[in-house]
Computed example of a mutant assay.
Amino acid sequence: MDPLSHLLSLYPVRTALDVRCRFGAPWVLDHEGAPHGVAPYHLIVRGEAQTDGQTLQTGDIIVFPHGHAHRLHIGDPAQASPTHSAPGLLRFEGNDGDGPQTDILCGEFRFDADGGGGLLAALPDVLVVRTAGRPDAQSLRHLLRMLHEEAETPRGGSEAIIRQLASALFALLIRTWLEQALTVPGLFGVLAERRLQAAINGMLTAPEKPWTLEDLADASHMSRATFARLFKQAANATPADVLTQLRMARAARLLDAGQPAGAVGEAVGYQSEAAFNRAFKRQYGVGPGAYRRRAPE
């Protein structure tokens, strides 16, 4: 498994796509703040939208990973015509504006609990990906077009098709973002730094191994000092901190599968169950036993 796929498998993300918008200018779409772990997103499938001083065009995707309240609009929001809703495969939101039209698909990425760190912490407040005219975004552009077609003209199986297509959206979005962004933070910063690929891949594939700084530096063909400096610059965290994050994320997935805490601790490199319990509780706020017994979300 490649490093990005492995990382995404440790941090499950569920995708909901539930609103189809068609607005004629002038229009405004206000979105209230979302709870922690819920990231609203908007797919601009036709036309333009503006938000916080930047213009979004056909094929652009904007995500608010930390759920911040936001506004999308075209024209003077004070002059926007009222919106109206209608039920359907996706709830429809529209208005009676007679200016240029904008079509938007809206939904949410829902992150499972990750102890306040990991994947969600590595995402910026606002994430924008452009797909128009970009060869590196061809797969994502095709996905947007298929989602739009199924939502616009539902046929037999459209609900299942939209659900399956939407499930691939987050992975394609993150891959394209990594390819387009000049700098990326946290865990993604390590993935984006090619010189650290061997080290992060080792942590992901063998979290039970007693990795030392020297081991990771050797895998990356660097001195310990150079490796430690480059890793801290990329991740804004030490290799030991990232290794612990990945171990705890792997432990959470094994606990989700019903494995006992003692076996899980050994599987992620802890010889002492007590030490594993302490590390897990620091990350997730509860011990592994309580985490495994929690009600399914």
Rank of each mutant, 00 (worst) to 15 (best):
P154H: 08
P135I: 05
V268C: 08
A240W: 00
D136H: 10
G118V: 09
G258K: 11
A252C: 01
L246I: 10
E266F: 01
G24N: 07
P77G: 14
G107S: 09
T226W: 00
S158F: 10
E108R: 12
D76Q: 14
Q259K: 12
N95K: 06
K209D: 00
A122I: 02
P12S: 08
Q233W: 05
G59N: 07
M203K: 02
L56H: 04
V28D: 00
A274S: 08
H36G: 12
F231K: 06
R71I: 05
E208R: 13
L7P: 00
T212K: 11
A290V: 05
A113K: 05
F188P: 02
N95S: 07
S5Y: 01
T58W: 01
L173T: 13
P124W: 10
G285D: 10
P124T: 14
D98V: 13
G118I: 08
S81C: 07
V286I: 15
G94P: 08
R163C: 05
R14H: 10
L127Y: 07
A237V: 03
A192E: 02
A198V: 08
E150S: 06
R155H: 12
P87R: 08
F280I: 02
H66C: 02
E273P: 00
L4P: 05
A295F: 01
N201Q: 15
C21W: 01
Q101T: 15
N201T: 15
D96L: 12
D125R: 13
D218G: 10
A237E: 04
Q50C: 09
P87A: 14
Q79S: 15
Q164C: 04
E149Y: 06
D103P: 00
L140T: 06
G88K: 07
P239K: 12
A168E: 08
R175D: 11
K209R: 15
F231C: 11
Q79E: 13
E193D: 15
G133H: 05
N236L: 11
A234E: 04
V242L: 09
L165H: 09
I62M: 10
T102C: 08
F276C: 11
A25E: 12
M203I: 06
H70L: 13
Q54F: 04
D114N: 13
V19W: 06
R134V: 05
A151I: 07
A78V: 09
D2W: 02
L204E: 04
R278W: 01
A290L: 13
A69T: 07
D96N: 13
D125I: 00
S272W: 10
G287W: 07
Q180S: 09
E152N: 09
L173Y: 04
L191K: 08
A274D: 02
P77A: 14
L243K: 03
L90G: 04
T15R: 03
R253N: 03
T153H: 13
P3T: 14
R71W: 01
T176Y: 02
G156W: 09
L120Y: 00
S5R: 10
P185Q: 12
R110Y: 00
D30H: 06
R130L: 01
F188K: 07
P296A: 14
A252T: 00
S5A: 15
L246P: 02
V28Q: 05
